[in-house]
Structure formats: C-alpha cells, structure tokens
Simulated scan of single mutants.
Amino acid sequence: MAGKTEKQDMAWRAIGGLVGLATAWAARKVIGFAWEKTTGKKPPSDNESLDISLGEAIGYAVVMGVGMQVAQILTARTARKRYNAWKAVKDTARDVTS
C-alpha cells in the first residue's frame, strides 16, 4: 500500500509542478499587463537600474510578489481539490469493479 501512496504523491508532484509553472507564467503576464494599464509604463525589467525610481521598483516588487503568491495559492488549492476529486472517483470505480 505504501508504494501506491508514493506513486500518487509523485503524480501530484508532477501535476503540481506543471500547474505551478503555468500559473507563474500567466500571473506574470497578467500582472505586467495590469501594471502597464494602471501606471501607463512598462513594468520595470531591471529594478537595480537607477533610471527607475526607488518607489516604482519597490511598488512593482510588492505587486509582483503578492500577485504571484496569491495566484499560486489559488491555483494550487484548486488543482489539489480537482486531483483529490478525480482520485476519489477513480478509487470508487476500482472498488466497484473489484
């Protein structure tokens, strides 16, 4: 039974990793778009550049950090719920056929 649990955990890790990558990419695009529409400027690409004000660099870092984390939390929780539901249906179907 332990082998089965490890296999399911590996499946979740693989799914979670792929979902995480897709979420990070999409969140970065959405946050960048929102930043540009809100400020009228492209998002800072180099926060160490002295051409970007300190306030803008810090503001973008805060918005990006919070936005990315919120997106990751929401997506991971949703994916986990879907995976658990799928796993329960799969286990139920296996029990019925046994």
Rank of each mutant, 00 (worst) to 15 (best):
M64N: 06
R28T: 15
P44L: 03
D46A: 07
A85L: 05
A61E: 06
A85V: 00
G65Q: 05
T78M: 03
T75D: 00
A61L: 05
I31Y: 02
K29N: 07
G17Q: 05
K41L: 07
I15T: 10
Q69N: 13
A34N: 00
A34W: 00
V63T: 13
G20Q: 02
Q72Y: 12
N84L: 13
E48Q: 14
K42F: 08
R13F: 09
K42R: 14
Y83E: 09
K7T: 11
M64L: 11
W12E: 06
G17H: 10
A61D: 07
Q8R: 15
N84H: 11
P44R: 02
A85C: 00
I15F: 07
A14N: 12
I15V: 12
M64E: 09
G17I: 08
A26E: 11
T78A: 07
E36F: 14
Q69R: 14
M68K: 07
L21F: 09
N47D: 06
V70L: 09
G20T: 03
N47S: 13
A79T: 08
G55R: 09
R13V: 08
A2Y: 07
T75W: 01
A14L: 15
Y83N: 10
D46G: 03
A27T: 05
S49G: 08
G67D: 01
M10Y: 03
M10G: 04
Q69G: 05
D9Q: 07
G40W: 00
A61Y: 01
W86C: 13
K41A: 01
N47V: 12
Q8D: 15
G20F: 00
A57P: 00
R80A: 08
L50Y: 13
R28I: 09
G59R: 03
I52V: 14
W35K: 00
K42Y: 09
S49F: 06
A71H: 07
K90A: 00
T92Y: 10
M68V: 08
I52P: 01
Q8L: 14
D9N: 09
Y60N: 02
I52Q: 02
W35M: 01
T39K: 08
V66E: 04
S49Y: 09
E36H: 15
E48D: 13
V89H: 15
R28L: 10
K4G: 05
A85P: 00
R80F: 06
S45C: 09
A24M: 14
S53Y: 04
R82N: 02
A27V: 03
A34F: 00
D91T: 14
M64W: 05
G40I: 00
L18I: 09
K29Q: 14
T38W: 05
A76S: 14
R28G: 08
W25H: 15
A11H: 11
V63E: 03
S45D: 14
G32K: 01
I15Q: 06
R13P: 04
L21T: 09
R80D: 04
A76W: 06
L18W: 13
T5G: 00
G17A: 10
G32R: 02
D51Y: 10
K29H: 12
P43W: 01
K4M: 12
R82Q: 07
M64T: 04
G65A: 02
W12D: 04
T38G: 01
L21H: 08
Y83F: 15
A61S: 13
K90W: 00
A26D: 11
T5E: 12
A61R: 04
